[in-house]
Every structure is written in C-alpha cells, then in structure tokens.
Design a protein around this nucleic acid. Structure first.
Length: 500
RNA sequence: GGGCCGGUAGCUCAGUGGUAGAGCAUCGCACUUUUAAUGCGGUGGUCGUGGGUUCGAUCCCCACCCGGCUCACCA
C-alpha cells in the first residue's frame, strides 16, 4: 500500500475488524441468483402491490456506490457496472454478525445481498436484505457522488475509477463494443473472412506514416510495428480470399491529438471484383447499419451538430472541392489546369497562404490546399473522391486520367473516417510508384513508402481487380458517442509515465 | 516540437505577498422507508517539483514535471 493516508488507514482498520469477526474478506465466489441489471430489468415493470403478492427472493452482488444510514435502518446502492439496485439493511432482519459486517462496510466495497425484492414508500426497487456477504474491500476512497470523476488525467490513467463512478463512460465503451460487433456482423453476412495479419513487419508498408521500430533478438533483425495491414490483406486476395477483412491495431509514430493516438484501431476490408464506386455504396450502407446496431439510430450528435449517417452521402471530387474553396477564398474562379501543374499549383497555394512540403508536386499541393480549406467544413458524411496519383502510391489510376486515382476519403464531423480505393494490381506500375516514393524519401520525406519486393512478387502472381477500404474505428465511435477526444473512446490511451 | 491554459484536502472547486477555504467524502453522536437523507460536533493540506526575489511566497520570477486545448504532422 503506497499511501499512509488517514482514509486508507480507516479502511484497512475496517478490513482487519472484519477479519477479527472471522469473515473471509476475499472469498472465492458468491452464489448470486441474478446480476443487478437482470433484477432491475425483471422487476422494473412490477408495481409495489405485485411485488408484495409475488414476494420474489433474490441474491445479487455488486459494488457499494452509496450508504445512507439511519442507525437501525440503512440503504445501500449497489452497482454491477451496468445496473443499480438499492438494498435495505434493517438491524432486525439480519443476523447480529451480518449487521456487524454491515457496520464495517465502506463506500466502494463489494458485497453480496440476499433477500426479498420490494418497493419502498418512494417506489424504489429494493432488496430487503436477510443475509449480507462481504466480497471484497476497496482500500482507497472513491470520487464523490455529485460530480463523479472529472479530472481527465485520472480518468485516463485509472480508467477503472472512471468506469466505476461515471456511467456515461461505461456507455461509451458499450457503444464501441457494439459498433465493432456491428462491423463484423455486416461483413460476415456478406461473405467476408476475418483474418489476422502481422503486427510486426520487416517493411512498414500500406500507408504513409512513420513507424515504431523494434528488434528481434534471435533473428537479429529490425522489425516495425505495422502502420497498416494493407499489403498483407492484398496478398490474401492474390491467394484467392476474395472478401477479407481485419479489425485490429495500427501503430503510427506521429503526434498525439484529439484525433490521434499512437495505436488506433482500423477496419480494413478488401473485395475482389469491386471498385471504389462500389465501396462508396457499401460504406453508406455499412456505417448506417453499424450506427443502428451501436446506438439504435443512424443519427448522432457530434460537436453540437446533428449528423445523419443514413445513405446517400454527398460526393465531391477532391479537385472540385479545392477549386470551389479556393475560388470562394480568392473571389476569382480557379481553372482546372491550376491544380495539374506544379508551378501553377504552388502559385495558387501561395496566394491562399497554404504551406506545403518542399519538393511537392501539383498533387501534394492540391491535397495540402484541401486539408487547409475544405476538411474543416465537412460535417455531414461526404465522399471526397479522385485523388492525385502522386499522393496515392497503392491506388489504381483512372483509365482516362493517369494523374488521378480511383480513391476516396470519407469525411464526417470535420475529420477523415475512411479511405478507400480501387487497388493497384499491376506489378509494373506498382514498382514505378514505389520508385517514385523512394525518390521522395531521398528528398527527405520520412513517410514515403519503402520498396517492397516481396509484395511486388505477390502482385506478379496475379491479384484480381479489387476495392479496399480502411475505416478508423476510434473516430467512428467518437461520432457515435459524441466524444470530443479519441482518448475518450480508447480504454487506456497512451500517457507519459506519472511522476512519483 | 511551438503557443495558450491548468495542477490547492480522497473527490469537485474557491482563494490570498502576512498562520489555508467551501461542498461532498471521512470520523463521532442522534435517527427503523432514505435516495444529493437530515441535524449537531470533529479530523484531514510540504497549495505539482526545484531554485530565486522578499523580513515573510501557495501567491511574484525562473527552470522542470504532468495534464488540457491548439498549431504543426498524420488517420
């Protein structure tokens, strides 16, 4: 025990007193007939008179969230994490020993109670306790009942406290769990096979981001935590798994923000004989379906704005969006050509005051302008499609326009939720794209894609035409729950070690 | 990494260059249907850490630690 605090000493003293009474203070189990939430659901509809008639008996268990004492009559509020129920402790209804145990209870302890279910004068569903069993001790004081736990640092570092006292936090993670189940249900029903691909990869590919680096001792080799499962899932389409998906963690060694955690959860799925247009339709259907599974509605509230996740979603091409936003900003029309030529795009960015990386071509500059001017305006679900080839090394080009790939990003609530494209399956073109990325890397772009000969060899064996998509699960759960920070939807977000 | 804001009792928060405050929790007493129970009386603090200025610092200054927001980067 790290603390010699008075409040901790008092609780330890109560624990010792229980031991002196002969109580097993950490018993192995408790024979409850029902969880609290089950009791609350079963008897919730019953009136006081109906309960008097039926006189149902039950044994249940949970954490004490409140003690209201009147001397010989007392009330406990018990929680099983989902539901709450009141227990009525009358001195004359319990054995002397059980009542002595009750007197030694602290806010936060776990107990089991057995007795008759009834309603009090104030109509509160209550267990009239005839037998009380001590189950576990809470040695630290819990946060207070009015405000719960507000301090976000403690909520993130000691999530168990947040979950124990803040019901809305519990709800967030229930929604998250139902959403993930909803994605699986949707994909499974359409014949997708769920797989697991390497988290440790010799080449961190499939996205443009800086990886975490680690080392395998026995093989004496550098490994990278994956930034995406993409290239492995596409190898599986080469192997004939026509519909495949993975829901798992990605790791990116980038900044932390309300929308970025170094490890985050992504759904990626690949579908043979589909292109990015097919995926748009499928995505609309999937997100609305998952929302209904998770929150019972395809409408959510995020940042004070109501968002409809029902199909269809708005569609706008990236260059159209950029030209429109730039024209509005500058008050003059912007010609399509201005986004096709490096020098003209650079001049446009300069006029707009938009910064872009050194050596950027027209594609990168256009994307930079999009992020600066457009991203923040996309509240309702919007497919932004047709990206510059320059920024999309794994996507298939449009047949009528080699500078453009068949790719979309889905924006909701002012951030990117999904990214999808018609997959580049031509090994010669893929090699050329990798070589272009190597040139970027040579110019100092640490996030440029590495050459991956093993992946190229897979493509050389023939990959069917396919569409693939990644969906940021954490961000989607933020939308569903209205959480302002990604840390609110990740149970244990990364934190610096606490100073001693 | 830059900028801004914050760290005071277990929790939620006030506050001041001159011995540190409230509510809840906690302890004691009373109370056999309360639910933010009530009434009365107590306990509880190296005011994030380390320096500096000052007769005196929780307060002013500097550095550092942790967190939040934001910008940059990304999803």
């Amino acid at each position: 025990m790290s603390e010699g605090h008075e409040l901790v000493r008092q609780r330890q003293a109560n624990l010792e007193a229980l031991r002196r009474l002969g109580v097993d203070v950490y018993p192995r189990t408790y024979a409850r007939t029902d969880a609290i939430a089950v009791l609350a659901a079963r008897h919730g509809p019953q009136t006081a008179a109906e309960l008097e008639e039926a006189r149902p008996e039950a044994a249940t268990a949970g954490r004490i969230l409140a003690i209201r004492s009147f001397g010989k009559a007392n009330f406990l509020v018990l929680s099983d994490g989902v539901g709450r129920i009141q227990a009525y402790i009358r001195q004359d209804a319990l054995s002397e020993r059980d009542f002595a145990v009750f007197k030694l209870l602290d806010f936060g302890d776990f107990v089991g109670v057995r007795g008759r279910v009834f309603r009090t004068k104030t109509n509160e569903l209550t267990i009239w306790v005839s037998s009380l069993t001590f189950l576990s001790k809470c040695l630290h004081p819990l946060p207070e009942k009015w405000h719960g736990l507000q301090d976000v640092e403690i909520r993130y570092r000691q999530r168990y406290l947040d979950l124990a006292v803040n019901p809305e936090s519990r709800r967030v993670f229930e929604v998250r769990s139902r959403a993930i189940a909803g994605f699986r249900r949707f994909l499974d029903a359409r014949g997708f096979l769920e797989v697991e691909t390497p988290m440790m990869q010799p080449i961190a590919g499939g996205a443009l981001a800086r990886p975490f680096v680690t080392h395998h001792n026995a093989l004496d080799m550098t490994l990278y935590l994956r930034i995406a499962p993409e290239l492995y899932l596409k190898r599986l389409t080469v192997g004939g798994i026509e519909r495949v998906y993975e829901i798992n963690r990605n790791f990116r060694n980038e900044g932390i923000s309300t929308q970025h955690n170094p490890e985050f959860t992504m759904l990626e799925f690949y579908q043979a004989y589909a292109d990015y247009r097919d995926l748009m339709a499928e995505t609309e259907e999937m997100l609305a379906s998952v929302a209904r599974d998770a929150i019972g509605s395809d409408t959510c509230t995020f940042g004070g704005e109501t968002i409809s996740l029902a199909a269809p979603y708005r569609r706008v091409s990236l260059r159209e969006a950029v030209r429109e936003a730039a024209a509005r900003r500058l008050g003059v029309s912007v010609a399509p050509d201005e986004l096709r030529d490096g020098a003209r795009a650079a001049a446009l960015a300069a006029r707009l005051g938009v910064a872009y990386p050194d050596g950027a071509g027209a594609g990168k500059i256009t994307t930079a302008i999009f992020e600066a001017l457009c991203e923040d305006t996309l509240v309702q679900p919007t497919f932004v499609y047709d990206f510059p080839t320059e920024v999309s090394p794994l996507s298939k080009q449009r047949s009528d326009d080699p500078d453009t790939v068949e790719r979309f990003e889905l924006y909701i609530g002012r951030f990117e939720v999904a990214n999808a494209f018609s997959e580049l399956n031509d090994p010669a073109e893929q090699r050329a794209r990798f070589e272009a990325q190597l040139a970027e890397r040579a110019r100092g772009d640490a996030e440029a894609h590495a050459m991956d000969e093993d992946y190229l060899r897979a493509l050389e064996h023939g990959m069917p035409p396919a569409g693939g998509e990644g969906v940021g699960i954490d961000r989607f759960v933020m939308l569903l729950t209205g959480a302002p920070s990604i840390r609110d939807v990740i149970l244990f977000p990364l934190m610096r070690p606490q100073a001693d």
